[in-house]
Amino acid sequence: MDADTQKVQLLITKHNTEKKALISILQDIQAEYNYLPQEALKIVSETLDVPLINIIGVATFYRSFSLQPRGKHLVTVCMGTACHVRGGPKILEEFERRLDIEAGETTKDSQFTLETVACLGCCAIGPVVVVDGNYYAQTTIRMVGPILKKYKKKEKKNEAH
């Protein structure tokens, strides 16, 4: 997706074009485009007068930024300690198996991106999976299929319209 120069400029001016607001600016761009397009980063570099290499350094350091376009649906599996001892890794494997991708990748049809997060802080209801902001508590291997089906169905519904 190409970054709209105007849009990006607006996001920068929203933070008073301050160098120190770099992370907040990147967070806004990430929220807008679902990833950080190369063009957008170049615009930020020019506008803030920060070397591009530094912007890239920040963008790749923090987990919540993605330099690759993300799929339509973001599946996040929690890998916190409590979720781990309750079988979290098996849930991740089941997602990997069904989507035929590894954690950090996006399906070929750009529908799903599978990621892990170190801890969501919902340890009591682990293992936890979040899809598009919806939290699933006490996930089991058996729930993985139906969860994916729900979002695939959404696609079919949207297509039908």
Partner: peptide, 11 residues
């Protein structure tokens, strides 16, 4: 920035 996995008191 409560990063410890398993801790969510601050949240």
């Amino acid at each position: 920035d409560e990063g410890d996995p398993g801790a969510y008191m601050d949240r």
